[in-house]
Design a protein around this nucleic acid. Sequence first.
DNA 1: CTGTTAGCGCTTTCAA
DNA 2: TTGAAAGCGCTAACAG
Lengths: 333, 333
Amino acid sequence: MVTVGIKEVARRAGVSPGTVSNVLNRPERVAPATRTRVEEAIRDLGFVRNGSASTLRAGQSRAIGLVVLDVGNPFFVAVARGVEDVVSDRDHAVILCNSGESPAKQARNLRVLAEQRVRGVLITPVDDDTSVLRRLRDRGVAVVYVDHPASGDVCSVAVDDVAGGDLATSHLLAGGARRLAFVSGPPAIRQCSDRRRGALRALETAGLPADALTDIVVPEMNAHGGRLAAETLLSDGLPDAVFCANDLLALGVLRALSQAGVQVPRDVALIGYDDIEFSSAAAVPLSSIRQPMYQLGKLATELLLEECDDPAGHAHQQIMFQPELVVRESSSP
Amino acid sequence: MVTVGIKEVARRAGVSPGTVSNVLNRPERVAPATRTRVEEAIRDLGFVRNGSASTLRAGQSRAIGLVVLDVGNPFFVAVARGVEDVVSDRDHAVILCNSGESPAKQARNLRVLAEQRVRGVLITPVDDDTSVLRRLRDRGVAVVYVDHPASGDVCSVAVDDVAGGDLATSHLLAGGARRLAFVSGPPAIRQCSDRRRGALRALETAGLPADALTDIVVPEMNAHGGRLAAETLLSDGLPDAVFCANDLLALGVLRALSQAGVQVPRDVALIGYDDIEFSSAAAVPLSSIRQPMYQLGKLATELLLEECDDPAGHAHQQIMFQPELVVRESSSP
DNA sequence: CTGTTAGCGCTTTCAA
DNA sequence: TTGAAAGCGCTAACAG
């Protein structure tokens, strides 16, 4: 293991270590000729800055953390792309963590990020426990909530899930459905409870009782969860329409129902949420609620970096996007 | 920003900093009573070890890097899960990087990982340039190739892509196809060139000329690339069958062809590669080549950690899995 | 514009 | 079993 430090570079370039550091961090303060010499030495020696040393000395790293509920969900992949695109311009790195909707994993991820002394954290929290937030804050780590609305003391970028739930449900009701099922993950996940609230609101607006909506809760918001939900649907008797809290669930439901000989939308209407790319290519193209995923990641990152760069002058803001209904075959007879 | 260091913990527990460090790293060498006292102090103070300082002093971090071609591809997501599951048991972190099939981004990712002094790197390289590997090696970073066969001096875990290409093509030929198209990313991507070689082998076995296969190369191996390929297919005249280098491409092709009124498999047979979950749920369930994705990640990580733990006694090995044909509607009239 | 210098917080001998 | 002390490689004053 060859270790080339800033000292060797300095020696070879005939300058002091401090100058090498300046070339690395504030090149404009170094005379062009000197800079060139140092850069050559760096190249010749294959020097790579020791990030630990630099982080230790500088007090903070050039990395931010991104904690999502499910890396396997295209929704979060799109968010991550937005984050990446903003961050990579600024020579920062993104540490991507997956909480898998589990508070324990989320806590572990945050500990790792705290150990790494990341500058900030973008997080879609698994629940409403704000102690997480405070803990981070106390260590001087900036936090922005992604896809999770916040109140005054944090930045957040979210999409109106109540409106989305209303949109989806109103659409199903407009199609003639009267008995509905709502398939979702645990209600502790805010996206689930908000979308459900939206559904209830739509029911009320339509003058229907709240018990027109049956809840089917599954442990994971993916295709497997969807297949589980379909079993319940099949054994309990089909409703007129099914609203799934995300597209992965809806795809699983669709698949399992088809295999059981149930036809969508003839026998039951179906709508998902997120409008991931695969939904339009499904066996029955899936109606869904579209969200500005990439924008979510992009804007959240901009807010985070703004806060990092100027913690004092920064004013927290809560951004709320509006979702959009996309009608396809799965819900239109 | 409150900074709690090992010193404050030591003071509160009435021990020396060295002892706190021992509690953190070799708890068995500390008397149970002392240990308890220190652990309490850690908890009370909310101490989180400074990873930079510890990495700097220890010479290496408790993280490994994983560099994949496309985080948006479920294939790599499955691989990443395998990696995670192995690594999380050992109190290590995974830094997930996306090269997006670009050598420049790959180089940037590797520089970041080198800066972080990761213990090892799992990588699906974008091309056959081995200087990457050497560079890392010279710094004492262990490397394992994922989904990329290697020769004697590195560990690798891969799936036989030539066999897979043969499998897919033989299947199409058995269905009666005579004129074929192969849709893939740049041939510099080994997965593409190998699968193509397999296709040619199948052609030869069947006594058909190599020019029975038309190549359609697109810049990115995702659904968008697939749609691009479909345009070429439509304008150049449809072949009997299309073999796509991965399922994302195939899904894009399927979608664009359907929109143009072409029916699969009636007008043209189609097969993908990877057998991602979405493929079975597609408008026309997609035939594909199945690979042990999760196992790939798991085994690669085990090899990597083995090498990290005992670089001297470690013998490099190249693992090659065999792929499996999955026939669905898209290729069976 | 460049050099000197004092640590950042932790790990790890070595002694006690 | 525990403590004391010497840096790991780098950055950021400050001086020149």
